[in-house]
Measured scan of single mutants.
Amino acid sequence: DHDVVPEDKFQETLHLKEKEGCPQAFHALLSWLLTQDSTAILDFWRVLFKDYNLERYGRLQPILDSFPKDVDLSQPRKGRKPPAVPKALVPPPRLPTKRKASEEARAAAPAALTPRGTASPGSQLKAKPPKKPESSAEQQRLPLGNGIQTMSASVQRAVAMSSGDVPGARGAVEGILIQQVFESGGSKKCIQVGGEFYTPSKFEDSGSGKNKARSSSGPKPLVRAKGAQGAAPGGGEARLGQQGSVPAPLALPSDPQLHQKNEDECAVCRDGGELICCDGCPRAFHLACLSPPLREIPSGTWRCSSCLQATVQEVQPRAEEPRPQEPPVETPLPPGLRSAGEEVRGPPGEPLAGMDTTLVYKHLPAPPSAAPLPGLDSSALHPLLCVGPEGQQNLAPGARCGVCGDGTDVLRCTHCAAAFHWRCHFPAGTSRPGTGLRCRSCSGDVTPAPVEGVLAPSPARLAPGPAKDDTASHEPALHRDDLESLLSEHTFDGILQWAIQSMARPAAPFPS
């Protein structure tokens, strides 16, 4: 592969990997390779389809078979030569091979799209000592099968071997295949498990690692696999990028399955594409389908809103127990993405979901129960707010008499603000006073009005108090039968009158 990737590009890729991570280095090298001529790309395919690569990765054979028959990708048995050289000459001794072996032994695996480039050397060096003999053996194999790289107009793939297949390693990572398949204008990513390549439709969760975000852009890794992070704060999961590491605690105790298979379609829109997988259930989501939507993949363990709600429900009964003089119970939860139609709101002032922060849900004790107040519409209280300059209440639009249902020339009671006709409430011909108009209920007259088809109010509507207090003497005590009587009149003013009279009014101040 030294004929494909020059030394300066190799060093530039290593520097970019240390600065921005393996995914960015892979993407940059792939983009550079696509700008080369067809001879360089053909050399790339020839390096990929060597015999030892085909033996190690069985899924490469179907890719090789898909090439046109007129494309010669065979390799000479006596060494490598550029395709432009007409004579089959043995190339001179390859010093770059020693360079590659020494550099890969030092860096474990470079971040390139060629056999030198995919593992994360920093994480491997940190986690190597417990498994040094086995990992050293794996390093000797890295130059042979560490990076199976493929690129063409139909298929483009980048393979990364790992030393996680050490025997006896619980939940060992089998390997990473960062794979971009450009077929019919689409893009897919796969993962390699035990020599087999699994596409998103049959993606397997190998051991402790999972394909957290099938994305090839942005600074985030394709698999949430930063070796420096180790395990999740809650004892979460091992990262795919942690090559040759000792077994780590796999999943939280509440995880239903340690080796679950995540779905390959969004649980909201039932469509495929780039998904984020939940650590607590097999569901996966688009970032845009979450509520609120996320802009980037959160670091650490992530769970959907259903799993978060289940966790909150487990903690909430203990938080609601009476604990005198104790601060509110704080339950730190990872930043969760909410699927459509589901929402768990945190306290005000918290950062938005999706940031690399930890939301704190506070379970406050329930407030003391209070008697429910009568629910009145805002339009129902409008007549009470229509007060004239002299303190006389004006008529609201649409006000109707509670007896006849007519809204023409209605009066407004100064005591309960109900609309009424003087002739309907006082049919006996009582003279109307000039000021202080009161309806039949507030004036103490319980004589029913002779209106055909309208039920008369119940005599129990009024329960006047002592006459010594004029204001308190007109406080009506309405009961269920009074409400039914008012409802039978089918008037809004009657219902409003009952609601206003049912509310307690402050006692009249004593004259000074």
Rank of each mutant, 00 (worst) to 15 (best):
E452R: 06
W498M: 04
S485W: 08
M355F: 12
T331D: 02
A371D: 07
P389W: 15
P397N: 12
C304R: 12
G436P: 08
E314D: 13
M355V: 15
D482H: 04
E475W: 08
E320W: 12
H363E: 01
P365A: 11
S378A: 10
P372H: 10
S291I: 11
R338W: 15
S458E: 11
G453K: 08
L496T: 03
Q497R: 01
E342I: 11
G388V: 09
Q501D: 01
P464A: 12
L385I: 05
L483V: 08
E274I: 06
S485G: 06
C266T: 06
C277V: 09
G280Q: 10
A288E: 08
L486Y: 11
P334T: 12
H363Q: 12
G398C: 08
Q393P: 11
A499Q: 02
S369G: 14
P427S: 06
A284F: 07
L462D: 15
P317T: 08
L308I: 13
E343D: 03
K362Q: 14
A370L: 13
P351R: 12
W302K: 12
L462F: 12
G398D: 08
C269I: 05
T447K: 09
E330T: 13
P450L: 05
C439N: 02
P328N: 07
D481F: 03
F510R: 03
E452Y: 09
L395A: 11
L258M: 14
L333Q: 08
L250T: 10
A456Y: 13
A507T: 08
P466H: 12
L455H: 03
Q392Y: 13
P476G: 11
S291T: 07
K362W: 03
F285T: 14
C281V: 12
L359R: 11
C416R: 03
R338G: 15
S379I: 08
P293K: 09
D356I: 01
P332K: 12
C442W: 01
P293W: 11
Q242E: 13
P450H: 12
I495N: 03
V403C: 14
D255I: 14
T301S: 09
R345E: 09
H490Q: 09
M503H: 10
V344D: 03
N262S: 09
E314R: 13
C416Y: 02
I297D: 04
L359G: 09
Q242V: 10
V246W: 14
I276N: 13
E265L: 08
L333W: 14
E326C: 11
I276P: 11
C401M: 03
D356M: 01
G272W: 07
A456Q: 02
A353C: 05
R440H: 00
L376T: 10
P347M: 14
A456T: 14
F420W: 13
L455F: 12
D493F: 04
P509S: 11
E321N: 07
G349P: 06
S245N: 06
P383K: 06
P317R: 12
G300V: 11
G402L: 05
R270F: 15
V387G: 08
P347D: 04
E489K: 04
G375N: 06
S291Y: 12
A284H: 11
R432V: 04
P397Q: 10
A380M: 10
A467C: 11
C386L: 14
P332C: 11
G444H: 14
H363R: 10
S245K: 13
R323L: 09
K468L: 07
A380T: 12
H479W: 11
P448Y: 14
Q242T: 11
P466N: 03
Q325G: 14
L364Q: 14
K362L: 14
C424R: 01
P335C: 15
F492C: 02
A399R: 10
F510I: 02
N262H: 08
A284D: 13
V315E: 09
V454W: 05
A477K: 02
A248Y: 14
L275Y: 04
T311R: 11
R323H: 09
V410W: 03
E390Q: 10
A504S: 11
E321C: 12
A371Q: 07
G444Y: 06
E475N: 05
S339I: 06
S488W: 03
G429P: 05
I495Y: 06
Q260V: 09
K261E: 03
G375V: 06
V403K: 13
P367R: 12
L385R: 06
S379Y: 15
L294N: 14
H421S: 01
F510P: 12
P253R: 12
G405V: 11
L290M: 15
F420Q: 01
G349R: 10
H479G: 06
S305P: 05
N262A: 08
P466A: 13
I495M: 04
I297W: 10
A366P: 14
C266K: 06
Q393K: 12
W422S: 06
E350R: 11
L496A: 01
D493K: 02
F285I: 11
P249Y: 12
Q316K: 11
G436F: 14
E330Y: 13
E342Y: 15
A428S: 13
R440L: 14
A340S: 09
P368V: 05
T447G: 11
S473R: 07
